[in-house]
Design a protein around this nucleic acid. Structure first.
Length: 164
DNA sequence: GCCAACGTTGGC
DNA sequence: GCCAACGTTGGC
């Protein structure tokens, strides 16, 4: 039996790489480099599968919130920036034959007609357990349940039929 | 293996 | 710009 599609949330600072940047990228696709947290690494390396859907979250902006949906189009593979001494994400302790950091490829799927702010997420009783609303939650790649995903789509005014 | 110091995240 | 929360590092 095929595994059920999973759902995730990924944070990005819009000044660095916004949802619009993703849409404008070649094939509306990008590689999600630069993650240097082991838990997020494990998720990308081990758990994200092609076809999984991602809530695209804008952090460090006013107001923070979910702007759109993306689709995983390539599963975990080594993040090349860890081997580049000129890159700000260079990791001198990582070896090419045993890479420490992984990334996935992401393609824009659909923008939410209504931006869903963090305040709105926090105010929704159905989303009290969602990772992103928890106090002190800094993880940039988080799991989302199917029910939470569906609720965010509803809040954002996006029909599931508009998704891949 | 403990834990203080340090660095980063990210809301406010 | 502040700072709480939290992850990582390194001395011991």
């Amino acid at each position: 039996m095929p595994k059920k599609r999973a759902y995730w949330l990924m944070k990005s600072e819009p000044d660095v790489f916004s949802y619009d940047h993703l849409v404008a990228a070649k094939k509306s696709t990008t590689h999600w480099d630069g993650v240097r947290n082991y838990q997020a690494r494990n998720t990308m390396r081990d758990d994200m599968k092609v076809g999984d859907l991602v809530l695209y979250y804008h952090s460090n902006t006013k107001p923070p919130g979910i702007v759109g949906v993306a689709e995983i189009v390539r599963e975990g593979y080594p993040d090349h920036t860890q081997f580049d001494p000129g890159d700000s994400h260079f990791d001198p302790k990582s070896k090419e034959d045993n890479p420490r950091w992984y990334m996935v490829d992401l393609r824009a799927a659909a923008e939410l007609p209504n931006y869903v702010t963090l305040d709105e997420l926090k105010a929704n009783a159905k989303l009290q357990d969602m990772a992103v609303v928890q106090r002190g939650q800094r993880l940039s790649v988080q799991p989302v349940t199917a029910a939470e995903f569906k609720e965010v789509l509803k809040m954002g005014g996006l029909k599931a039929s508009n998704l891949p």
